[in-house]
Design a protein around this nucleic acid. Structure first.
Lengths: 340, 340
DNA sequence: TTGAAAGCGATACCAC
DNA sequence: GTGGTATCGCTTTCAA
């Protein structure tokens, strides 16, 4: 190989041994000083010499070495939610990161796009995270949970629509969203209700439970539910709107506000009066929905706060043998505006 | 402390030594088999025994130990972009992750919310990433870059509005966006142009260059530029609209499509004709902007593809001593619809 | 074809 | 107060 890096300056990465040498002390002393170890008293001059040496060399401790020695990490791994991030999730994510860092965890998002459930779990396990908080982007299986636990994860928490065996499942029951929307429409006298299913991949985990919730809410009310495929582009919306009359619907729950805005515009352009002829309801309570005319009715989702979840993570890490709680952490309520 | 974990089963994490023991071979053999080391021939029966043992124990290699031994990682660290992620960034991010994983890198987003530049750089450096790709969420200083390089990062790449000394700076010149918008407005005969500055923290890195670009585009045309603070809520928009007449503006460039939609609605509600009395231009070319009436004019941004950036990362990792290229990777063009 | 052993960097126990 | 040193899990050279 011609890759011998001899010419490059390639000043190698300083280690604690380098710091020790420069400060004229042992590596142990360096460790004590830099970690403020309280069980040992180091004289002030020594401390200063060590600190200065570390500063001068630009010493940064090696996380891998440290965690190897320690036998555990403080890493909380969040599978990176690629698709399906609305502003709601984003805010939640930020809160969670904040709160976890305050609890002295290192928060790392791991890009798992295109890995299947168990591949992903293995990849995560290699990093030996102390906790994994999955938001349901990757289908975490019971085997996946087992892999993670066997590799030392103290807490495996899913915020998925469905429960996952073995994990502390915090179910965010998406079906409530669909349920609220349809209950609202039924209550307002609608009986023939379309439910938009986004064609975009990755949204099924959310769309299907929402649809199920819609179906359940309609059961026994005499209302019928019709699934409607819709892609997030104007053509798809116009096609759907063009055949609207033939569907015989008097209302539609459009998965979320963005799809609802798209569909509502197409319906308006097709001459369908809203809410007169067809009522439209979205979900997520986006600001933009309020700007439409008529104003978009929606389902407001109360998300668990990041703070709360961070505390659960911490509690579970400290007592991993507590009973996995399966709690529902999402509240949903319909917000009536003008489109329904 | 009463935390002695003696009662818990606490089956400890399997290591390669455990696999070796179970398979009746040495740790070296285990390593050879599991890594498909080609420089050494292992008999097929042995291979199978090792594989089965690993499977049975649920063995997952310890990334920290491996990289400690190897002296380097394949980790590409992306500071997690907390605020300011539009759908545009999201797609780019996903592309980048995909492409990097295809090149056999481990992509990790590190939540750096609330850390200042050098703190953040030190935190990242602890993980010894082989590359850092910053999208400008954190103010990466030349010192920060130095810390990273000293800790072994082969590539430090910024996609920031501004150049950062020492890094391979891929400038995404946000000022072009503002420039395009204002040039478009001037060309259509507007001479008194408001430029929205979002009040939300974290957006300054984008908003300021965009504003600068706007100012430059107006210079010498006789048009005047007026900064307008606007928060992303209805009240702020209504307040701004209420005083609109007093501002004497015939056009506004609203930072991006979302702010533009918000402001446009408030202006319409205040009885301002658009585009007759005031033209409105956004940026990002969101689908939703096309749904408004009048349809929202915007600035379309051509983002560098994730694939391209991934290749640059890989090239830089392989040849860290190449000249840091400072390339502009963003194209912007105005899209005229109906609001201007 | 397989095994023994050194060593990556940091920590914490035990001597001095 | 401070210094030697064993150790964490893994890879890889050298010997057998």
């Amino acid at each position: 190989m011609s890759q011998t890096p001899r010419q490059s300056a390639e000043r190698s990465v300083p280690t604690s041994a380098d710091v020790a040498r420069l400060a004229g002390v042992s590596r142990a002393t360096v460790s004590y000083v830099l970690n403020n170890t309280s069980s040992v008293r180091i004289s002030e001059p020594t401390r200063r010499r060590v600190r200065e040496a570390a500063e001068e060399l630009g010493y940064v401790p090696h996380a891998a070495a440290r965690s190897l020695r320690a036998g555990h990490t403080r890493m909380v791994l969040l599978p990176a939610s690629a698709s399906s991030v609305g502003p709601l999730y984003l805010q939640f994510f930020n809160e969670l990161q904040w709160a976890l860092r305050r609890l002295d965890y290192t928060v790392v998002q791991y890009g798992s796009l295109g890995l299947d459930g168990d591949e992903a779990a293995r990849a995560w396990a290699e990093l030996r995270p102390v906790a994994v908080v999955s938001l349901g982007e990757v289908g975490l299986t019971p085997q996946g949970v087992d892999i993670l636990k066997r590799s030392g994860a103290k807490a495996v928490i899913t915020l998925a629509p469905r429960r996952v065996a073995g994990a502390h499942s915090l179910v965010m029951d998406q079906s409530e969203v669909g349920g609220c929307a349809v209950a609202h429409l039924v209550q307002r006298g609608r009986r023939s209700i379309g439910v938009v299913m986004p064609s975009e991949p990755g949204l099924e985990h959310f769309a299907e439970p929402r649809f199920e919730g819609a179906r359940r809410a309609a059961a026994g009310t005499g209302a019928r539910i019709v699934p409607l495929a819709l892609a997030y582009d104007e053509k798809s919306a116009n096609d759907l709107a063009a055949g609207w009359a033939g569907l015989g619907l008097d209302a539609v729950y459009a998965y979320n506000d963005e799809y609802a805005m798209l569909l509502m515009r197409a319906l308006q352009d097709a001459g369908i009066d809203i809410p007169g002829r067809t009522a439209v309801v979205g979900a997520d309570d986006l600001l933009l929905g309020r700007l439409l005319r008529p104003r978009l009715s929606t389902v407001h989702i109360d998300m668990v706060t990041g703070q709360l979840l961070a505390e659960l993570v911490d509690r579970t890490v400290r007592d991993p043998n507590g009973e996995p709680e399966t709690r529902d952490l999402m509240g949903a309520r319909a917000v009536h505006r003008e489109s329904s």
